[in-house]
Simulated assay, not measured.
Amino acid sequence: MYAIVEIAGQQFKVSKDLKVYVHRLANEEGSKVSFDKVLLVDDNGNITLGAPAIEGASVEAKVLQHLKGDKVIVFKKKRRKGYKKRNGHRQSLTQIVIEGISATGAKKAAPKKAVVEADATDVAEEAQKAKKAPKAKKEDTQD
């Protein structure tokens, strides 16, 4: 069972006992948090799709720790001008572990209808009609 959930403006594919790094959350370490914006739930082939979110579905998680991501160096240069700027950035992250996915109150998606293929005779008849139809002539005008 997995779900696609929106956490802090980003979408993640999550399943039970999965550790995920997300943008910094305001919750304290060790606290539980619930995300209600569940976009899709797959329960062993039974897909439930929200428009845009599934009503009544939620994902429960526990905050493990707050940390900083890897350093990203931002370097700007304009050649032949003597312009160089070096800057760095470290993103603040929160590590969470998914404890459960609940899809209570969710409506199941309607199964797709089978597409009926056209018979070979129908295709042949349409091709014959297309050949018999008069084609528009191009008028050749020269000045």
Rank of each mutant, 00 (worst) to 15 (best):
L25V: 10
L25G: 08
L25P: 10
L25I: 05
L25F: 06
A26H: 12
A26W: 10
A26E: 15
A26F: 15
A26D: 14
A26Q: 13
N27Q: 10
E28P: 10
E29F: 02
G30E: 07
G30D: 09
G30A: 05
G30L: 09
S31N: 07
S31P: 00
S31C: 05
K32R: 08
K32F: 12
V33F: 04
V33H: 12
V33Q: 07
S34M: 10
S34N: 09
S34L: 08
F35G: 07
F35D: 04
F35M: 11
F35Q: 08
F35T: 09
F35A: 04
F35H: 05
D36S: 01
D36A: 07
D36Y: 11
D36Q: 05
K37N: 06
K37L: 03
K37V: 01
K37M: 01
K37Y: 03
V38Y: 03
V38S: 02
V38F: 08
L39F: 03
L39I: 13
L39M: 11
L39W: 03
L39Y: 03
L39D: 00
L39V: 12
L40S: 04
L40R: 07
L40T: 06
L40Q: 06
V41E: 03
V41P: 01
V41D: 04
D42F: 06
D43P: 00
N44F: 12
N44E: 15
N44W: 06
N44K: 10
G45K: 04
G45M: 13
N46M: 02
N46V: 11
I47L: 14
I47W: 11
I47D: 11
I47F: 13
T48I: 11
L49I: 15
G50Q: 06
G50W: 01
G50E: 04
A51H: 01
A51T: 11
P52Q: 00
P52N: 00
A53I: 06
A53H: 00
A53F: 09
A53E: 00
E55Q: 01
E55G: 00
E55S: 02
G56S: 10
A57S: 05
A57H: 03
A57E: 05
A57Y: 01
A57G: 02
A57V: 07
A57P: 06
S58F: 10
V59W: 02
V59K: 00
E60S: 07
E60N: 08
E60A: 09
E60R: 01
E60T: 11
A61K: 01
K62M: 08
K62G: 00
K62N: 06
K62A: 01
V63C: 10
V63W: 13
L64G: 02
L64Q: 08
L64W: 07
L64P: 02
L64M: 12
Q65G: 01
H66S: 11
H66C: 09
H66P: 09
L67T: 13
L67K: 09
L67P: 00
L67Q: 07
L67G: 01
G69W: 08
G69C: 11
G69V: 13
D70I: 12
D70M: 02
K71P: 11
K71L: 15
I73E: 13
I73L: 04
I73N: 14
V74K: 14
V74T: 14
V74E: 15
F75R: 14
F75V: 15
K76G: 14
K76W: 14
K77E: 15
K77T: 08
K77W: 02
